[in-house]
């Protein structure tokens, strides 16, 4: 089996996995409705009570677009493989990869991308439907250039989130139990990535810190492109920053995994 075909196989493995649990994904997508509804009513009350057209720099339609699209984007970029990696480390299963002619990093990456392809197709259709519905019912303006940039940005957000959680997964070499760290990290990352509220609602001091971190590029930045909160120029400059972050995290993961592999005892493996 040549180099390319074995990774194509792992990609297909991820794809098949996603197709097997498609109902689960659809249900988790349906459960997005509730936080969207909560925020819809919250922002409706806010806009009604302030009598202002713009709150935190958002019109009502922009805010609702942000709420819906960020909830969907949050589902799309969500990972989960970090728990599998820590389990591989804990149970010694990782050792089988060290004797096989396959890179564990590429194996995880291909499975992740394979799983996300199905979700990407489903969500692309949902995104289009939501943007059109917002345009018709809430007079939300659509800029074709920004929609295209948003579509191009999403794979980068996915890759960035993969790198963030692949780095985090290395903690499994140092701690036997890590689920609490992973879970808490993902909750905090969701808040600082703009998955609960747009980052503009936080004060200057919080924004200064949060905007230095890579998490904003997983949700806040791509959604800001499509809602028209940032122009094409700023959106495009974000592409270079994300690529930079991916490179930094790649190097960090290499370093952390090399250190971790030296500690790896292959217990039970």
């Amino acid at each position: 089996m040549n180099v390319a075909s074995k990774y194509v196989r792992t990609f297909i493995l991820g794809l098949q996995n996603a197709l097997t649990y498609r109902a689960n994904f659809m249900l988790s997508l349906a459960s997005c409705v509730f936080p969207i509804l909560i925020q819809f009513f919250l922002w409706r009350s806010v806009f009604n009570s302030t009598d202002q057209e713009i709150v935190y720099g958002y019109t009502f339609s922009q805010m609702i677009a942000y709420v819906i699209l960020s909830a969907l984007a949050g589902k799309l970029v969500a990972t989960g493989f970090e728990y599998e990696i820590s389990n591989d480390i804990k149970t010694g299963q990782l050792s089988k990869f060290s004797v096989q002619p396959i890179s564990y990093f590429l194996f995880r990456g291909c499975v992740f991308i394979g799983e996300k392809v199905v979700q990407l197709i489903i969500l692309f259709l949902v995104f289009v439907a939501v943007i059109v519905a917002l345009h018709v019912y809430l007079d939300f303006s659509i800029q074709i250039g920004q929609v295209l940039l948003f579509i191009g940005f999403i794979p980068l957000s996915l890759l960035l989130n993969f790198m963030i959680y692949y780095c985090l997964a290395a903690l499994g070499f140092w701690f036997i139990e890590v689920w609490g760290i992973y879970h808490t990290f993902s909750l905090v990352a969701m808040v600082v990535g703009g998955g609960v509220f747009p980052l503009d609602v936080f004060g200057d001091s919080i924004q200064r810190v949060v905007l230095l971190l890579p998490f904003q590029y997983t949700i806040f930045h791509p959604i800001s492109i499509v809602t028209g909160k940032i122009d094409l120029q700023a959106g495009l400059s974000g592409v270079w920053v994300v690529l930079g972050w991916i490179a930094v995290l790649f190097l960090l993961s290499k370093w952390a995994w090399r250190k971790g592999m030296k500690r790896f005892e292959s217990v039970g493996g």
Partner: peptide
């Protein structure tokens, strides 16, 4: 450790409520 993680996870959820 599970106790500590339980506390840690709920602090994460608390952060969302505080937002």
């Amino acid at each position: 450790v599970n106790f500590m993680f339980g506390v840690l996870v709920e602090i994460g959820f608390l952060a969302i409520k505080l937002s």
